[in-house]
Write a protein that binds this DNA or RNA. Sequence first.
RNA 1: CGGGGUGUAGCGCAGUUGGUAGCGCACCUGGUUUGGGACCAGGUGGUCGCCCGUUCGAGUCGGGUCACCCCGACCA
Length: 489
Amino acid sequence: MDFLTKRSEDYSKWYNELVVKADLAEQSDVRGCMVIKPYGYAIWEKMQRTLDDMFKETGVQNAYFPLLIPKSFLSREAEHVEGFAKECAVVTHYRLKTNETHDGVVVDPAARLEEELIIRPTSETIIWNTFKNWIHSYRDLPLLVNQWCNVMRWEMRTRLFLRTSEFLWQEGHTAHATREEAEQRAQKMLKVYAKFAEEYMAVPVVQGVKSETERFAGALDTYTIEAMMQDGKALQSGTSHFLGQNFGKAFDVQFLNKENKPEYAWATSWGVSTRLMGALIMTHSDDNGLVLPPALAPIQVVIIPIGGKPEQVAAVDAAVAPIIEELKQKGISVKYDNADNKRPGFKFADYELKGVPVRLVLGARDLENGTVEVMRRDTLEKETRPLEGIAEFVKNLLDEIQQNIFMKAKTYRDAHIYECDNYEEFKERIKDGGFFLCHWDGTAETEAKIKEETQATIRCVPFGVEQTPGVDMVTGKPSKARVLIARSY
RNA sequence: CGGGGUGUAGCGCAGUUGGUAGCGCACCUGGUUUGGGACCAGGUGGUCGCCCGUUCGAGUCGGGUCACCCCGACCA
């Protein structure tokens, strides 16, 4: 077992402490909710902007829909309501009043709502209720909208970023004239997510399709990207659903086709959430703290001066000014930290904890020699370079770090993906984590048995894996394909 | 909702057979420091989760209650 999996018993605690110490987020006093701190939010903002641009390149536009959903909307699609009913927060009243002892407030029983409102757990229902008014002709299609918002799901147990009662996300909702077009859109958005995860977050993902039991409530197909965390568990990092005509029919969204015949619209929805922050942290971090991919780091380069006397710092101030300017011109975000209330050693440790990819250090020694010390966060390697041409060197180094942490994560993940055909062996090995490619007979019974006996679930039927028929490792019945099985968050 | 645990300063904790509140970190002031998480000196900060009881006296004992955390069921 390697050192990261060895830590798995304390992984949860380690993760939680890291999130707090690195200044990303903290538990709110409000049950199950999270406060995202400015540094954490800065990373999320960069994710948002990048994803938003990628969506727009595929023709998607942003919009915004209400937070509150009438209860009756939610129950229009039978499977959908069943999937979410257990975790909905409900607004029942619209007014408070002073209590009898005049030292507090109580809910005014006279202000009961005729129809309760649900705080959105997801917005399919209210959006399709609106789409009904927007869609009349095949010329109105496809309709491609996305919203950035918060949603609430009353979870029993919560963990910072990975599962909180309220979370931030984007949810894309599209309407199409044909089944094929909707299916293609669902798959296209999955590709966008996979590209974002791998190229920006440097998190390798397995793409695939969910089994029937793991599907989104109301979907015909759910596509997913699954990432492996350092303890060998899977994290569902993004999903894209082909919803068929379920919502079109439930909300009576019909359009006239070219033949002047009415048809129900075809739907997709797709989302990623602040859970991606969890994926980012749990994929790259080490014992010194966070390791951020340069593409998403709010601070890409930090410069720290050495020397306590004001004139020493002033000399460094002057020397770094042109370098800062040059780095900025190359589009690199730089922080020059010459604060006098923290010693250099503290700053070194602190910026490592926060995952800043590159650190430059300058002291009197360097000013004399025309050099600078460069440290890269991913490997913690230090080297002294000439000051001349340092901006160009840093730019290349950032690219190299981005590549390196992706390759490191991919190598780690690939080393923990196993094929397994023996259930007894599987039951033993799954305890150490990892992804298992196993034959499955396609029944929900087998799936449930595996889950009950091992806590592992079928994450997806992966794409791009060469499939040969075999026999189910549990029942011995024929199997068409290998599926990805893992314990998950 | 089951099983376990914890509530004492902003955070982390100690508090003996019941005797009136303490340590570390952080914070403030002054000084010396500054190439890997500085040191010295001084200082600010608490109706011990809440209620009731036992007692001359409760952080400590008893009963109740609330909150939070961990392990399950649920889940992006």
